[in-house]
Nucleic acid binder design. Structure first.
Lengths: 156, 156
DNA sequence: TATTGTTATACTCTATAACTATA
DNA sequence: TATAGTTATAGAGTATAACAATA
């Protein structure tokens, strides 16, 4: 039987939502054995690469609202994967560092996610994956530009 | 300043999530003047193309759980965009049809979303968009395959 | 005054169990 | 017994306002 959502599939935005929805489900399952959720994994990754980063910088990087980052950081801290240190020069801030356990967990989880990435893009050449990544990046920039200003589209 | 999430951006799954998140925000804003949400628009589209479709078929088509479709259908019915008729042969079922108002609203919304699609893929050639759509479809199939069975990836 | 991190809160989206009415 | 639609509910993910501590 032919697809009943054929017209919708003419829209790239619909295809993105459908594909991403399934992909995030796979990612969630892949991270579950590590006790990580997508956001805790992403935070761990950025903190590993940038020791001493502040929560507000992390929030900006991951496009997460500051209040929503609180529980992510708290989760990682409770699991002993992360440490917070008050910054002496400005005691409003906390600098974030991963623990040894955090670094190990991150490396294992990242290795698993790279495999997931391979699995999900199986059937595409490396050039096609590169083209896909470029296209996604361009769309992300276009979309961010649309939401930033008072876009005409939302005014009928 | 360089990206702080450079490592994460090596993962296509991360790029998909970031791009799709922004895209869905733009789509939401674009549908708002029509009083539609993403799901009500999608439902309207499928019902327009397939008059008489049943709710369970619609749920399968859009990959929405049956309970979650109830409010979507109710919303469209309350707005007078949709009608439900009990099927005489099997009175458990309702066949769905759009009203004239529903057809008009759908056409206008779809026209707007096609423009949104163009805006978001601006900078890509039509060949590149076609390649993107194919890649997204392949990934969707790969991901659906992973979630269906007891995937080995979730076992460390 | 402005900013960092926090709390409280609410809204959307999604997922599951259990019910009803039909078959 | 099985299925279509429904209800109730709970869990994520995300968004805003307001607060305390600090600058």
């Amino acid at each position: 039987m032919a697809r009943l959502d054929g017209t919708l599939r003419e829209l790239t935005v619909y295809r993105m939502r459908r594909a991403t929805s399934d992909v995030l489900s796979v990612v969630k399952d892949a991270l579950e054995p590590f006790g990580l959720r997508r956001q805790t994994f992403s935070a761990l990754s950025v903190i590993c690469d940038h020791p001493g980063i502040r929560q507000s910088q992390l929030a900006d990087t991951l496009a997460i609202e500051r209040p929503n980052l609180v529980q992510v950081i708290g989760d990682l801290e409770n699991r002993g994967l992360l440490m917070r240190e008050q910054v002496p020069e400005d005691r409003r801030m906390y600098s974030l560092h991963v623990t040894n356990a955090g670094a190990i967990t991150y490396r294992q989880a990242m290795r698993t996610l790279r495999k997931v990435d391979k699995t999900l893009t199986a059937g595409l050449t490396s050039d096609e994956v590169a083209a896909l990544n470029r296209a996604l990046h361009l769309i992300e920039l276009n979309a961010a530009g649309e939401t930033a200003d008072g876009s005409q589209l939302s005014r009928s």
